[in-house]
């Protein structure tokens, strides 16, 4: 989905008519928002952060467990990654301090998150990056 930066109108797809600008207001600047997923990424970071903030006050275990449920929901049926698959793509070390594993993020294994250094759980958001792989492959093979 593409969102016009000036008038805020959403467009399912870019089409020829939009090369000249937004059909509504003529602006040529668009934000890219993939359906639902945009919210997921933002939501996840926000929620995780909230949990991290409170984690200092709560016993760690409790905080971690509390964090799991809503996040799992946000993943839209996402599975918890298996023990062997715990390479988190995003880690919130402390409020305002983030570590990103570009390799796993780019590798489209989904967003895997871990709260706190103890690594008590990981969240796996599958399929975020899996689409279009085939289409691209085909397009670029000579």
């Amino acid at each position: 989905m593409h969102k016009c930066l000036r008038c805020g109108k959403d467009f399912e797809k870019m089409n020829e008519g939009m090369f000249g600008g937004c059909p509504e207001c003529g602006s040529k600047l668009f934000l890219y928002v993939r359906e639902g997923e945009e919210e997921h990424a933002t939501e996840l970071v926000r929620r995780l952060e909230k949990k991290t903030e409170t984690a200092g006050k709560l016993p760690l275990e409790g905080a971690a467990l509390e964090g799991v449920e809503p996040l799992e929901e946000a993943g839209g049926g996402g599975e918890l990654s298996s023990e062997g698959d715990k390479i988190e793509s995003l880690k919130i070390v402390s409020p305002g301090v983030y570590e990103l594993n570009l390799d796993t993020l780019l590798g489209r294994r989904g967003i895997i998150m871990r709260l706190k250094e103890d690594g008590s759980y990981a969240i796996h958001l599958p399929s975020l990056f899996e689409k279009k792989e085939k289409a691209r492959r085909n397009r670029h093979t000579p």
């Binding site: 990424a41 995003l90 990103l100 993020l105």
Partner: peptide
């Protein structure tokens, strides 16, 4: 941080 994720999704 969200920006990094968004940039990667754009790919």
């Amino acid at each position: 941080t969200e920006g990094v994720i968004e940039a990667i999704k754009w790919l």
